[in-house]
Simulated assay, not measured.
Amino acid sequence: MIIAATVLETAHGKFRVSTHGVEGSPERCLTMSQGDLSEPGTVIRLHSSCIFGEALLACDCDCGPQLATAMQEVNRRGSGAIVYLYQEGRGAGLDLKIEGMERQRLRGINSYQAYDSLGLPRDLRDYSLAGEALNDLGVAKAVTVMSNNPTKLKALEELGYTIQSQFALSYEVSQRAYDYLLMKQVEGDHSLDFGKINFVG
Rank of each mutant, 00 (worst) to 15 (best):
G138W: 11
R122S: 07
T162K: 13
L181F: 00
Q113E: 15
L134M: 06
D179S: 09
N148Q: 12
N149A: 04
D193F: 01
A142G: 08
N149S: 06
T144A: 11
E157N: 13
G131F: 05
Q185D: 05
N110A: 04
D179A: 11
K141W: 07
L159T: 10
A130K: 13
D116S: 10
P150G: 01
R176S: 15
L106A: 01
T162S: 10
Y180M: 12
L192C: 02
K141I: 04
T151I: 13
L137A: 09
A142H: 11
P150K: 11
D189Y: 08
M183K: 14
L192K: 04
K154I: 09
L181Y: 00
G138Q: 11
V145N: 08
N110G: 08
G119V: 02
P121M: 00
D179L: 05
M183I: 14
Y161H: 14
N110P: 03
A168T: 12
Q166E: 10
H190Y: 11
F167G: 02
D116A: 11
D123N: 07
S191A: 10
S111F: 07
Q113M: 10
E158Y: 01
L120E: 09
L137I: 11
A133E: 13
L182K: 15
Q164S: 12
H190C: 04
Y171C: 03
Q185G: 02
Y112I: 02
N148M: 04
Q166M: 05
G108V: 07
E132C: 06
A140E: 13
Y180S: 14
E158A: 15
L124G: 01
E187I: 02
G108E: 10
L137F: 03
E187V: 04
A155L: 05
P121D: 09
G119Q: 08
L118T: 00
V143C: 04
Y180V: 06
S165T: 03
V145D: 06
S128G: 05
R107K: 13
D193C: 03
Q164V: 00
S128W: 11
L129A: 07
D189P: 01
N110L: 06
Y180R: 15
L106Q: 11
N135F: 00
A133G: 13
D123I: 00
K152C: 03
G108H: 13
R122M: 01
R125W: 12
Y171I: 01
Y178A: 10
S170P: 01
V139M: 12
E157V: 12
D179G: 03
Y161F: 15
A133S: 12
N110T: 10
S165N: 10
L124H: 12
L182C: 12
Q166W: 08
E132K: 13
G138P: 03
D126F: 09
L106T: 05
Y178R: 15
L181Q: 08
R176N: 15
L137T: 13
A133L: 06
T162R: 14
N135K: 15
M183D: 13
P121V: 04
Y127D: 02
D136N: 15
K141R: 15
A142Y: 03
Q175K: 14
A155D: 04
K152N: 05
L156K: 12
N148H: 05
L120A: 04
G138N: 11
